[in-house]
């Protein structure tokens, strides 16, 4: 019990940190998803030029660590004179980074639909816009939901990296507490537990979605 004392004193501070983590992840998820859908459409339907640019973007983003990009923007942003609060700078980078992964998830969903679905929709005289809206997307999004949730979990974990460039969220909060209490085991394990609760819940939701999508097909 005495070992847990530092944790018991500081858990509320850690919870506030977790709140910031969720805020950051939440702020990044929305643009990442929106951009991911757009990029997936470009990948499937875009002209060769657009697709080539997209491939380069995907290659770069998936081959460079997020931390490098975060640090890069963190040092670079003040120099360009753009007055962006660090929080939003970080959210922007994470959105652009995860949009790439999301777009691959959505693309896989779209491409995994049997050709006959496209054929049937087209044969009934549907224009591409209508076909996407009522036939392709409802199915593709259902298929993409489980790996999408998986990417969201990854995004939540990635927020821990912003602590390295000095932004405050759960990981930074726990570092501060450790420096003060010199009890790394308890505090970091406590932080790990909080992350676990958030991520595992999301992961369970993802598995629920996976089971549901199998039933309908």
């Amino acid at each position: 019990m005495k070992m847990l004392a530092p944790l018991l004193h500081s858990y509320w501070y850690l919870f506030r940190g977790a709140g910031m983590t969720l805020l950051m992840a939440g702020a990044a998820v929305l643009p990442a998803t929106a951009l991911g859908v757009v990029l997936a459409l470009v990948h499937v339907f875009g002209r060769p030029m657009a697709r080539a640019v997209l491939q380069v973007y995907l290659f770069v983003v998936r081959g460079i660590p997020l931390l490098v990009l975060l640090t890069f923007v963190y040092y670079l942003l003040p120099l360009t004179g753009i007055d962006l609060p660090p929080f939003w700078g970080v959210v922007l980078v994470m959105s652009l980074y995860y949009a790439a992964f999301m777009s691959e998830v959505f693309r896989a969903g779209i491409e995994s639909l049997p050709q006959a679905q496209w054929d049937a929709a087209r044969s009934l005289g549907m224009t591409r816009h209508l076909m996407l809206r009522i036939v392709i997307f409802p199915q593709a999004l259902r298929l993409a939901a489980p790996p999408f949730v998986s990417q969201c979990v990854s995004l939540v974990k990635a927020t821990s990296l912003v602590s390295i460039v000095g932004l405050w969220e759960l990981t930074m909060a726990s570092r501060e507490v450790v420096e003060r209490t010199l009890a790394p085991f308890q505090i970091f394990i406590g932080a790990a537990l909080i992350y676990f609760c958030i991520c595992y819940t999301l992961a369970l939701y993802g598995r629920y979605l996976e089971r549901r999508s199998l039933v309908g097909h």
Partner: peptide
């Protein structure tokens, strides 16, 4: 456990934990 906790936290636990 390892899939649902960030690598950075695991890193800190090991590094600082062992030191302590």
């Amino acid at each position: 456990t390892v899939r649902n906790t960030p690598l950075l936290i695991q890193l800190y636990i090991i590094y600082f934990g062992f030191a302590m």
